[in-house]
Structures are given as C-alpha cells and as structure tokens.
Design a protein around this nucleic acid. Structure first.
Length: 548
RNA sequence: GCCCACGUAGCUCAGGGGAUAGAGCACUUGCCUCCGGAGCAAGGGGCCGCAGGUUCGAAUCCUGCCGUGGGCGCCA
C-alpha cells in the first residue's frame, strides 16, 4: 500500500502531461512519436505550481503562433481540468501555467508519512539493474588522505542514491598491492625499521616510521605493510560509515592467472602488438593520445594490464545488463581513454563503464591553505579531517559542490556548531522538528492517525512552501542519481531546511492560541518534514540527530 | 604543445535551452508573552571570463581566445 502512495508525485506529472497531450490532440496538432511533454516547476511563484513549454515547442512544426495555440490549449484544459488543478493560464511567449489547489500538497504530507524516511522519494528506474561502484581504491602504501575522503563521500552517496532508485549496488575497493609503488613502500618500511634512511624515491611520511616501529622483526615488509595500510584505511573509512562489499586485490588477480587470458584476448582481437621488447595496447585506435605498454620489456606487467583484467572481471560479475561506475581522482583522468579503449577492444560496450572524475579539494583551516601531499609527507590524513570536523560534517561538506569543481574545504568552518554551517543548519532543522513532537507529547497532546487529520487547515504560506519543497524530493533524487550528482540533494536539503526553520518561526504547533485541529494537522506536517530531512540526509550518509 | 574540468554577487557556490539569474557568508535595517532567537524577514550588491555562431529564446549548446586547476612514465 505504501508503495502506491509513494507514486503520488509521479501521478501528478502523468496526469498533467496526459491532459496536455490530450489538449494538443484536440487542437489538431500532429505529435511526433517521441514527443515528450515538457513539464517543470517555474522559478517564480506567480507562474504557478507547474509550467509547460509544450505550445512553444510544438508551434513551429504545427505552423501555429505559440501564444494563440497556448490560449487554445488553456481553454480546452479549463473545460477538462485534471485533479487538483485550480487554474490554467497563458504567460509570456506561450507558457502554460498550472495553478494547483492546496489539496495536491496535502497529499504530499500523507505520502511522506506513509513512506517513511527509508521509502520516501524512492524511484524505480533502476529496475534491479546491477551496478558496481568502485571508489577510493587508495594504494595500500599509507593512510587515506583528505582527497580520498571526497571520493569516499561521493562514491558512497552515489551508491545510496542508486539504491533509492532501485538499483542493485555493490561497493568495491580495488587494492593496488603489486608493482613498483609497493616495492618502494616495502623498502621504505624495511629501511625505517633498521634505522636507515628511506630510499629517495620511497615514502617519507611520518607514518612510515610509526608503522616500521610496530613491525615485528623478521616480518615481510611487503605483506605486513599491506595489511597495516589496509587495516588503517578500513578503520578510517568505517568511521565515516563507508563500508565496501568487495575488496579486490590486484596481486590475487595476477596470482590467479587470468592476466594471461586477458592478454590473449587482446592479442586475438588485434588490439596489442610487440615492440621494443614490450607488449603494447593499440589504444590510439580508440581515441587515446598514444599506445600504452601492457607488459614491460623486463616481463613485468604495468598497472594497466591487471586493471584491464580487473574491469573485465567486474563486467562479468555485473552481468550482461550490469553497469560499472568508477570514481577516480583528477590525476587519473588521462587513464579513462585507455581503459575504455581496452574495453572496446575486448568487445565490451564502453558505455557500460562510466568514470566520474573528482577534482582536487583545496583544504584550508581558517582561510589558510593546508597542502595535501602524499609523497612529501605533510599530507593531511582523512583521519585528521574526521577528528577535527566529525564524520557528518565531513561528508556533507564534501558533497556541498559538484565533483566537477575544485572546492575549498575549510576545516574550522565545517566543524563550527553554528547555523552558518550548512550541516548544522540542516541537522538542526531535523532536531527542531523532533523537539516539537516531543513537546506535544509532553504537553499531553494525543495524536490522531494521519488519515483522520484534516490537512485542509494547512494554508499558511510557510506551510505551503514547506510542502512544495518536500514534494520535489523525489524528482531531486531521480535527477541526482541519473546525473551521479549527490550535491543536488545537498542543495535541496539546504532549501528545505530553510523552509522548515521558517515554518518553525511563524507557525506554532502547540500552544495557547493554536486550535486543536490545527495542532493535529501541523503535527502531521512536522512528521512529514522529519521524513524528508531524514531521507535527504540518509542519501548522503549523514545522520539525522533528534537533538543537538 | 596536446588532453580534461572549471570561470556566475566582495567571498564560498547552486542553476546547465525558457519568463525579472539564486542561496549562504559579509554589509545595512527591522522582529523575542509562547514549540531552542543557535532563528525569521527586508534592503543594497551581477557586461553569468571575452568574442562569434546555432535557436522563437543562450548563463546554459557549438567554435575560437584568455584565465585557473589537473594530466600527458616501460610509476600507480
């Protein structure tokens, strides 16, 4: 039953676009087979609750004047009004503006209460399709740093969004536990243990000395170091509630022998060739700048070859309909073309591999830049960020902006417990809404079941605004999932929280001057607000505290 | 030099074919009998980097240029 309730927002769009389509047909317009009725929420309130540009889009093909056509459509719609529509008008060059009765917003309250925070805003576009989201995948040569934090927050939020849209999601971490970087790491640990200077090309972070001092005498620096780094990474990521379903080891992949299969497959496909004693991938045939080495002249695999085998394996695990999403840092963007080239060469649809590239984060503390530099040793570890600002603020701040931007993350501002801090502002809205419900309970208010409450008394502009914002959540979730853009949810939360604070300020729920039936209706609205805030925060992996 | 992303209010950033371009901070000014004023509201502030093009319509799409960041290893 709750499932059908949650379809309400989809229904209102369907109902409006269906009516528009019927109006167009009645007006004698021939619609293209793939015609989609444009329907959006106007930026300006006076343009109504929903608006369509259908007349503008169709006018040219129909050889009609947009404004005249719009007038005709409006007249027809006036005689055949869909449910909840109070008024249809024409504006500007030919926009059709729908003004809805408050009853459509009252349905939104029922919808939210019925769905709960886990169900509200759920979409069905995933239809059970498998998607493997690979993110963080830091080298096991040291702690995860602040830059990985962004990938962690982003990858996990994308996974959560996709889950809310009906995808079957696997979170995966790829361990690059092989190759020259691992050699250098092991050599650095071994040298530090013996009190010798670490190799110049090695790792110089302070953690090397710390970990070397923990390392038992006679331990294999490579294996011990790998486990030490992974344990550290797992621990830190876990403390911001990022958990992976699968940890895939490059070394294990190599040991299993599947690399040779991949090499053979590339050879059979004519995608590789030998030159200068090395084996090369013809990636330049598929849009890459140049060809890339798969097997070095000393017989060692490069990073690329096992990674191709790994992606082949992932595609296989995801199934024929499955999708791969990789979250890579900006320093790996040049790697996208060659991986896609390899996928094409192996006969896989390169569109099944998506790579989201996250730009670098500039880290500040009270306006002063803090450099992130893994190799030189003055790196800011993710652990430090979490200790300073907390997991909730870190996640929310990482997700404040699009991953296409290189934002500034001020640790001091993110940690501040003030309303100017968007994390605090949004969480505070949730806490306030919970406080109201507590207060009503403490005041002896007995709540009626929502379906028996007369929501028709909710007509205050603050209430309407809150319900309007709430009603957009499902569309926001869908857009955020499709665009792999969790920051859209962050932006929505800030707007919705502002509406909640406004309501809180102007609309008392319990108190002397509030009629009992209004208290009941507002308590239902408060529950709906709690659902919306908790649902939004939940898709970002941020907690919704009941008090602060 | 080539490749990718970005350039929007003083600052941090949303918006990514549609109507008069938005939010927070900062600045000016109002509002506390009562659910937490840790708040709410009003105001000032914009060649949407520049120049062309496509379109009924461009901050949004295309091309070029300028600027910023990142990448261009038989490292990972």
């Amino acid at each position: 039953m709750a499932g059908t309730m949650c379809q309400f927002m989809a229904d209102i769009r369907t109902s409006l676009s269906g009516a528009l389509r019927a109006a167009l047909v009645a007006a004698g317009v021939d619609l293209p087979g793939d015609f989609q009725v444009g329907l959006e929420r106007p930026a300006r309130r006076e343009h109504g609750d929903w608006s369509s540009n259908a007349a503008l889009v169709v006018a040219k093909g129909a050889e009609r004047r947009p404004r005249e056509l719009a007038e005709e459509l409006a007249a027809w719609l006036g005689e055949h009004q869909p449910e909840h529509v109070a008024d249809v008008s024409v504006a500007g060059p030919g926009f059709l503006n729908f003004r809805l009765a408050p009853s459509w917003l009252h349905r939104v309250v029922l919808d939210a209460v019925a769905c709960g925070s886990e169900g509200y805003g759920r979409q069905s576009l995933g239809r059970g399709r498998t998607v493997i989201v690979e993110f963080v995948s830091a080298n096991p040569t040291g702690p995860v740093h602040a830059g990985h934090g962004r990938g962690a927050a982003y990858g996990d939020a994308v996974a959560r969004l996709l889950e809310r849209c009906g995808y079957r999601v696997q979170r995966e971490f790829y361990i690059n536990d092989r190759g020259s970087q691992m050699d250098l790491y092991a050599a650095s640990l071994a040298a530090a243990q013996k009190g010798e200077p670490v190799p110049e090309e090695g790792y110089h972070g302070r953690y090397i000395a710390d970990w070397a001092s923990e390392m038992p005498a006679g331990a294999d620096a490579r294996n011990w170091g790998r486990e030490r780094a992974l344990a550290d990474q797992r621990d830190v990521l876990g403390s911001m509630s990022v958990e992976f379903d699968t940890w895939s080891s490059e070394q294990a992949l190599v040991d299993s022998g599947v690399i040779g299969d991949t090499l053979d497959a590339l050879d059979r496909a004519g995608a590789s060739y030998g030159s200068d004693g090395a084996v090369w991938l013809r990636s330049s045939d598929s849009g890459d700048d140049k060809d890339r080495v798969l097997v070095k002249s000393d017989g060692e695999y490069t990073y690329l070859l096992p990674d191709i085998a790994y992606h082949r394996d992932k595609l296989d695990r995801a199934g024929p309909e499955g999708l791969l999403i990789n979250v890579w840092g900006a320093d790996h963007h040049g790697y996208v073309a060659r991986m896609k080239a390899a996928m094409s060469a192996l006969g896989c649809d390169p569109d099944r591999l998506e790579v989201a590239v996250t730009q670098l984060v500039r880290l500040e503390r009270n306006g002063a830049e803090v450099r992130i530099s893994k190799r030189t040793g003055d790196l800011i570890e993710l652990r430090e960020v979490l200790d300073e600002v907390g997991a909730d603020a870190a996640r929310f701040t990482y997700l404040l902006q699009s991953v296409d931007t290189a934002p500034t993350f001020d640790l001091a501002k993110a940690a501040a417990q003030v309303m100017e801090n968007p994390v605090f502002y949004v969480q505070m809205a949730h806490a306030r809404v919970c406080a109201i419900a507590d207060r009503a309970r403490a005041g002896g208010v007995v709540r009626q079941p929502v379906e028996e409450v007369d929501l028709g008394v909710l007509v205050h502009e603050r209430e309407l605004e809150m319900m309007r914002r709430l009603s957009a959540f499902g569309e926001v979730v869908k857009a955020a999932a499709v665009e792999r853009a969790p920051h859209r949810v962050t932006a929505w939360l800030r707007d919705f929280a502002a509406a909640v604070h406004g309501f809180y300020h102007d609309c008392y729920v319990v108190g002397d001057g509030v009629a009992p039936e209004l208290t009941q209706a507002r308590l239902a609205l408060v529950t709906a607000a709690r659902v919306g805030l908790a649902a939004g925060l939940g898709t970002l992996g941020v907690s919704a505290p009941e008090s602060m």
